Computed example of a mutant assay.
Amino acid sequence: MIINLSGKTAIVTGSTGGIGLAVAKGLADAGATVVISGRHQERVDATLAALRGTQAGALARGVVADLGTAAGCQALIEAEPQADILINNLGIYAVKPFLDISDADWEEIFQVNVMSGVRLARHYAPGMQARGWGRIQFISSESALNIPGEMVHYGVSKAALQGLSRGLAKVLAGSGVTVNTVLPGPTRTEGAVAFIGKMAQERGVSATEMEALFLAENRPSSLIRRFATPEEVANLCVYAASPQASATTGAALRVEGGIVESIA
């Protein structure tokens, strides 16, 4: 299968590292002009330099904005008023006992994980609809289905993305615009590596041993028995953004290593 996204503009939020960066690279490799976003100029510049070092990413451009705020979303919209592909990847998480999660914690995680996607989809969807083609994705998590007891607010925010995506797919039914969520499982991003490294140090084991212990203790239903790579997640995102995926909409697309104990 050859995926050709030449002539398409793709916005990937939270794309200076991890899954977002892998998705941006994948879309660029498929020919899309990719818009990188991040909160810090130096990280955006470094990402653009890496992308522009390849032929595929030569046209990439960046926007510095805090998309966890309404003002930040508006700054991105003003800089990039039109897009064909919108990947709502921006997200935060924090391990915290439920009884210690404050109103401010709940508000922050919903502003970043949910409202950033709401605001951007609300702006870009009408243009896609008018042109008769578009792709909107929300990067959710297997935690939307298996709400983790150690970070309930994160799981709830990801479950909200499931409902948002399905509802928006209905709003855009028959328009040529598809809307899907992508559900990664444990993925070897910079944040996850740091998290596992800290746990490994605390327990006096290697990072490799800690990764295996984490899966055994927290995600024992994993069928791949390892963390996925960001590129493995990105491969599904790139396909879902392609013309070939035109009949896939309103779906929760799993790339979680078989953790979810369900065949539906």
Rank of each mutant, 00 (worst) to 15 (best):
V118Q: 04
G132K: 10
L99R: 14
D84I: 08
L51E: 00
V193M: 13
S157M: 00
P186K: 06
D84Y: 11
P220M: 03
L21F: 14
A24C: 04
M210G: 10
E256G: 04
A144L: 04
E209C: 10
H123M: 07
T16H: 03
T16M: 04
S6D: 11
G53Y: 00
L59K: 15
R39K: 14
I196M: 09
L76K: 09
G31P: 11
D45F: 07
R131P: 05
A75P: 02
A65H: 06
Q162R: 14
L67T: 02
V255D: 04
P97D: 10
G185H: 02
V23T: 14
G197T: 08
L27I: 10
T54N: 02
F110D: 00
E232P: 07
T33R: 15
S116H: 02
T47S: 11
G167F: 11
K198G: 08
S157A: 09
V12Q: 03
G91K: 03
G163H: 01
R225E: 15
E80F: 00
E190D: 13
V171M: 01
T229M: 10
G163D: 03
D84P: 09
A200G: 11
V179T: 03
A251F: 08
M151A: 10
E78L: 11
L213I: 15
Q41C: 06
H153D: 11
R254H: 12
I109E: 01
T16D: 03
Q82R: 14
E78P: 04
V12T: 04
G117M: 01
V156H: 03
R219S: 08
M210S: 10
K8R: 15
Q82G: 01
A24N: 05
Q137Y: 01
A264S: 14
I147T: 11
N146F: 04
Y124H: 08
V152T: 14
G53Q: 07
A160L: 03
A212G: 12
E142T: 07
I101H: 05
D29P: 02
Q244T: 11
A28F: 04
L253G: 06
S221H: 12
G250H: 08
G17S: 15
V34G: 04
P97I: 06
T69W: 00
R135T: 10
L27H: 08
I136A: 00
G7L: 05
V238C: 04
E202F: 04
N146A: 12
R166Q: 15
I263K: 09
I92N: 01
L215K: 06
A30K: 05
A169M: 06
N4K: 09
G62R: 02
P97K: 06
P81N: 09
T16Q: 05
A212W: 10
A94T: 13
L76N: 09
V238R: 03
A79Y: 07
V112E: 00
D45R: 11
A65N: 08
N113G: 03
D66P: 03
G163I: 05
K8H: 13
G185K: 05
Q74C: 00
N146M: 10
